[in-house]
């Protein structure tokens, strides 16, 4: 058996995601990503099920595995109980572990995702925080967001939130003891290693 497939079979998302695909195409029919991109979960399922090492390697280096929006609409509808969205997660994981994600334009975006979401979690304990969401990067936020950011503290008081405060409540500051536990979990379970891998491969790519 080929090595990529062996590695994929270690991933429980792969085991759960691919039972036996009959290539019916229902997943592609309901998939929102297939509606807007040159993308077909059915094709991906067929490629991994056939187990051709070279084709899977190509997949790991391609933009293809990065189009999925993880809505999991495919999970509900597959008549054979497969979940293409889970298989995609397993492929993305392997693509990152092997550094192959750095070979595709969409794969390289993982650096941006890591620096936005990953770093915010490490810094604040939230995956997103009002102070970090700039209207320049998020013009869709609209003028109401600029207004909220200008007056966050007082609006927070008006609506019973707890912006940057101690204790409980929306937008509260997460205490250092809790941040320490979160970081320890990230260290223990491989998130820090993943972050470093993403940074390292992109840096290599840019050399």
């Amino acid at each position: 058996m080929s090595k990529i497939i062996d590695e994929l079979k270690q991933d429980l998302r792969f085991i759960e995601g691919l039972k036996a695909c009959i290539s019916c195409g229902v997943c592609t029919a309901v998939c929102p990503a297939a509606q807007f991109y040159q993308y077909s979960p059915r094709d991906i399922m067929l490629t991994v099920q056939q187990g051709d090492e070279e084709k899977i390697d190509q997949l790991l280096k391609s933009d293809t595995i990065w189009y999925c929006g993880e809505c999991l609409s495919c999970k509900t509808r597959c008549p054979r109980g497969n979940t293409p969205g889970y298989v995609i997660q397993a492929l993305r994981q392997l693509s990152q572990q092997r550094g192959l994600f750095a070979q595709s334009r969409l794969g390289r975006q993982q650096l941006e995702v890591k620096r936005i979401i990953g770093d915010t979690m490490l810094k604040r304990g939230y995956c997103v925080y009002v102070d970090d969401v700039e209207t320049d990067y998020h013009p869709e936020q609209g003028p109401v967001w600029d207004w909220f950011r200008k007056h966050t503290a007082t609006i927070s008081r008006r609506i019973g939130a707890n912006y940057d405060g101690e204790g409980s409540g929306s937008m509260r500051r997460i205490a250092e003891e809790d941040m320490a536990e979160l970081r320890a979990i990230f260290e223990e379970t491989g998130a820090m290693e993943r972050f470093e891998t993403i940074e390292k491969w992109i840096a290599n790519e840019q050399e």
């Binding site: 429980l12 998302r13 993880e70 997660q89 993305r92 994981q93 990152q96 993982q110 995702v113 890591k114 979401i117 990953g118 979690m121 304990g125 939230y126 995956c127 997103v128 101690e166 204790g167 409980s168 409540g169 509260r172 997460i174 205490a175 003891e177 809790d178 941040m179 979160l182 990230f186 379970t189 491989g190 998130a191 993943r194 972050f195 993403i198």
Partner: peptide, 19 residues
């Protein structure tokens, strides 16, 4: 007050392992 992110957005973006 002690709760944090569940990591959901990071997980579905593929930047953290399931563990």
């Amino acid at each position: 007050p002690h709760q944090t992110t569940c990591t959901g957005i990071a997980y579905h973006s593929g930047i953290v392992p399931i563990e």
